[in-house]
Write a protein that binds this DNA or RNA. Structure first.
Lengths: 228, 228
DNA sequence: TAAATGATGTTGACAACGCCCACTTAATGG
DNA sequence: CCATTAAGTGGGCGTTGTCAACATCATTTA
């Protein structure tokens, strides 16, 4: 009975789980306000700690946002994996993956902007490691869905063919990404027709994909590079 | 000779052209720093006026950024119009337009993020009028390039067909937009292969477009709505 | 077991920011 | 010619990101 927290609502000197709480609160605030312009001090307030406590866990705001972005990538990857797990047809798998991607962006545009936008890449430095690897894992799902999907089965594993597959990935990802951002940023609408709209466009995309695979120059990487 | 500015480098009390200078400086700073996180005070400093002078021309930072965004749309529209003006083939016109679009984004990602991203739409309010109309004008170019281009010539002007054309616009714009942002945000690369890469993907896009036109639900608008 | 260490949290400070106010300047038009 | 008003100034308020110095406490080590 030495530590009685309940009577005066007083927290022990050390929070115990601040890192996690700060990141989660940041994700909440970001999702609600749809903006990355919240302050570290507010997160600290919500967590009931002093305005400087977060700096013991994150060097600066950028590093915090990188952690949030990484979580965003993990969430997206999980949703994409779940969406495709019970499907056999490569085409259905691709469609389901695209749906998950688009849905995530429409549901939380600010998070997608943080993840894919340039804030974290800013100032010439490269993206923080933590979110770069998370992004890489997410990208791997797209790549594999295309590679051992509709195309892979009828294409031998020769070097010009891998470039063609990279081309397909690029086209598919471009389309999915563009549709997502157009919808998320409300450049097409209206909001209550989004789902139907996305579904139609998605099917058209998949239809056209087969007939429109460009080869891609050598040395091109798809997704953020792990090194550099 | 009453107003001798040269001797003491002193500006007359009234600047005379502050509005324009502020917007232009903002565009410069945005382009160089690739960030919208510059301060109004710095713009004022660069213009040689007090930290409050800009507030006589812009209610707040958001309004300034809206003006910058509008200029971005005007620049883009001008480049797209120039790129297509000397071409006859609809396909070539589409390709040229897409090149201009992609090039603009790769050259100045932060400007594209401002233009297309959600900063200006933020907080439930609608986008500022000035940039909404500029965006609308730019969008009109895309629409017309598709409508009286490859599709329009062989499609009668019936209601289901206009929906099909809207579908084509959507697919094309999605692809172009997605490719642009993927390149601009360095999710694919490397930088020195971008041009070649974009060209290949673009051609693939155009190839596939013909074979993959979804119809789009009724009531869908493409581009930011002029009202509301 | 006692003391040193390092991780975590606190307090206080600083410069910079967005934005508000009251004031000044100078151009305009009735 | 003078009143109105757009445009610029200076000071100030509350907030922010970040730094430095100090406090607390669990863990290791002597």
């Amino acid at each position: 009975m030495t530590k009685d927290i309940s009577t005066k609502e007083q927290r022990p000197y050390h929070h115990g789980d601040l890192h996690r709480v700060i990141v989660e609160t940041a994700l909440d605030v970001l999702s609600e306000s749809q903006s990355t312009e919240f302050s570290l001090r507010e997160l600290a307030r919500r967590a009931g700690v002093s305005h400087n406590a977060p700096y013991k866990h994150f060097a600066d705001k950028r590093e915090l946002l990188a952690a949030v972005s990484a979580i965003g990538f993990e969430l997206l990857a999980k949703r994409m994996a779940e969406a495709t797990s019970k499907l056999d047809s490569p085409r259905q798998r691709l469609a389901a993956m695209a749906r998950a991607y688009v849905f995530g962006g429409v549901t939380n545009p600010a998070l997608y902007r943080l993840m894919f936008g340039g804030y974290l890449a800013g100032q010439g430095e490269s993206r923080p490691v933590i979110e770069r690897t998370a992004a890489y894992d997410m990208k791997a799902l797209i790549v594999s869905a295309i590679s051992d999907g509709a195309l892979g089965r009828e294409i031998a594993d020769t070097e010009p063919n891998t470039r063609t597959i990279d081309g397909a990935i690029l086209v598919f990802w471009s389309q999915m990404h563009g549709l997502t951002l157009l919808l998320a940023d409300r450049l097409v609408g209206p909001a209550d027709k989004m789902e139907e709209l996305a579904e139609n466009v998605l099917q058209g995309m998949l239809e056209g994909l087969v007939n429109s695979i460009p080869a891609v120059p050598e040395g091109v990487w798809v997704g953020p590079p792990l090194e550099g």
